[in-house]
Each structure stands twice: as C-alpha cells, then as structure tokens.
C-alpha cells in the first residue's frame, strides 16, 4: 500500500462528531415530520412557517455536517474519484432524460463510488452531486442532498456486506435502497415544497391527492412508484460497469481490498488491508 492510500485524518474524532451530530439532526427532523405532520397551509390559507423551516433547516444543516465530516476522512485517491462520479451522475441523468426514458438514472456515479470506496465516499459523492446540481441546473436540488447522501452510504454498506460479490443481490439491494430513498425524500417534497417539485412528478403527486390521499401519502406513493425501479436498474448497471472495469483499477481501493466487495471475489474476513 502506498502512502496516499492512508486516510490522513488527524481530526478523526472531530469528523466523527460532525457525522454523528448531522445524523442526529436529520433523524430528529425526520421523526418530527412523520410524527407531528405539520399542516402546510391552515384553514385561512395562512402558511405554516415553523412546519416548513424545521425540515428545510434540519435537512440542510444535517447534510452539511455529514458531508464535512465524511469528506475529511477520504484519502486523496478516493477524493479525485468524486468529481468524476458527480459528472457521471449529471451527464447520464441528462442523457436518460433526453432519451425520454421514464427514469432518473442520476446516481450511477454515487453508487459506483459507494461500492468501490465505502459509505463515507458514497455519501460525499451523493451530497455534493446535489450541490453541483443546485449550482448549475436548479436550486430545488439542494434540500434533497440528504437523500443522495443516504443512497451513497447505503450503496457502501451494501457492498461491505457482500451484495456486489454476487450477481443476484445488487438488484434486490437496489429495490431496498429505492424504498428508503422514497421514504426519505417524501417529507421534503411534502412539507418544504407542498408537493410542487417538478412538472412530471408534481402531476403524479396531484393525481394521488385527487384520489383523496394526504400530501405526505401522495409524495410517498409517487416516490415508491419511481425510486425502487430506478435504483434496481441503477444497481444493475453499476454491477455491469464493475465487471467491465480493469482489475488494476479495482485493486487500487483499500475498501475493495479490505472487504473483497466485487463480483467473483471471495469473502476473506481474515485478510487485513495492509
């Protein structure tokens, strides 16, 4: 192992505190929204200010804390991968949209990095993808950064428990990730944006509301309609890409060597990274 593989992290405790604090803030916000379900607009068409500022502030601050804590833990070999992965997210997402497919496919890079470099790297790639998306295309992407962080971290954990060693498990992990992503994002669309997040998805939310569902139920149903299928396909594509990557490239990552995460690798728990 070369020197640049070593996670040069003199502030390990501080970074972990950032990540833990961010996670606590996000979970507290989520529980508040699910349990209290603040009304978006009251009977006099007055806006419920506190009900919307709590999710906005909670999710953005939480995502920021997690991203800052996680990025400082990454070694340079992993960090240079992040911009490339973000570009893959954005460009493939745009190609998918231009082909007119009813999918997003905007997290291939995030999941790829999560698998080869671990949950922290996946989380950073996801979070910063939404920052770049917000800076270049639409600021509406920013409050959803936490969802992308969760997706990247889940991909890393899935790889660690050996999902990508097999050929049948990645699609299942994709469906599970999609369900969690839908549950994580639906309170954001409901309580911050009142269901108004985009033309196509917005129309589906309106349709569910027309059948008498609550706003939160409608955004959740909309998410469950699109996210699991999207992530199933994304995880499958990532598995195919991993099969095609040269093995010299794959062996560069300490995470890959430590947990033997890739297709065809055997579980060897006793081999240390060094």
């Amino acid at each position: 192992m070369t020197d640049i593989d070593k996670p040069a992290d003199p502030h390990r405790t501080r970074n972990n505190i950032f990540i833990i604090a961010g996670t606590v803030v996000v979970i507290a916000t989520y529980l508040y929204l699910i349990l209290a379900q603040p009304a978006v607009v009251d009977e006099n068409f007055n806006l419920n200010g506190t009900g919307a500022i709590i999710p906005l502030a909670g999710y953005v601050i939480g995502a920021l804390l997690i991203a800052v804590g996680a990025i400082n833990r990454l070694p340079t070999t992993t960090l240079v991968l992040v911009p490339v992965a973000i570009l893959i997210n954005i460009v493939v997402g745009q190609i998918t949209a231009s082909l007119g497919l009813p999918l997003y496919l905007d997290s291939i890079g995030t999941i790829l990095v999560g698998v080869v470099a671990g949950p922290a790297a996946g989380a950073v790639t996801g979070g910063l993808s939404n920052v770049i998306w917000g800076l270049t295309l639409s600021p509406l992407a920013l409050p959803f950064a936490i969802v992308a962080i969760v997706i990247g971290a889940l991909a890393g954990w899935a790889a660690r428990i050996g999902v990508f060693r097999t050929y049948w498990a990645p699609p299942i992990a994709g469906i599970v990730t999609g369900i969690i992503a839908a549950l994580a994002s639906s309170p954001i669309s409901a309580f911050i944006f009142g269901g108004a997040t985009g033309g196509g998805t917005g129309a589906i939310v309106q349709a569910f509301q027309a059948f008498g569902n609550s706003l939160l139920a409608s955004t959740t149903l909309q998410g469950l309609l699109s996210d699991p299928l999207d992530k199933l396909i994304t995880f499958t594509i990532v598995m195919l890409i991993l099969l095609a990557l040269p093995s010299r490239f794959k062996q560069r990552f300490p995470f890959v060597r430590q947990y033997n995460v890739l297709p065809g690798m055997k579980k060897k728990a006793s081999t240390p990274a060094a």
């Binding site: 269901g195 108004a196 033309g199 917005g202 309106q206």
Partner: peptide, 11 residues
C-alpha cells in the same frame, strides 16, 4: 412555470 402550473391545475 411547469411546476406552478401543475400545482395550480391539480389543486
């Protein structure tokens, strides 16, 4: 515009 139109029509 697309976002607001969808919400206004739906609601």
């Amino acid at each position: 515009v697309p976002l607001l139109l969808v919400v206004a029509i739906g609601q």
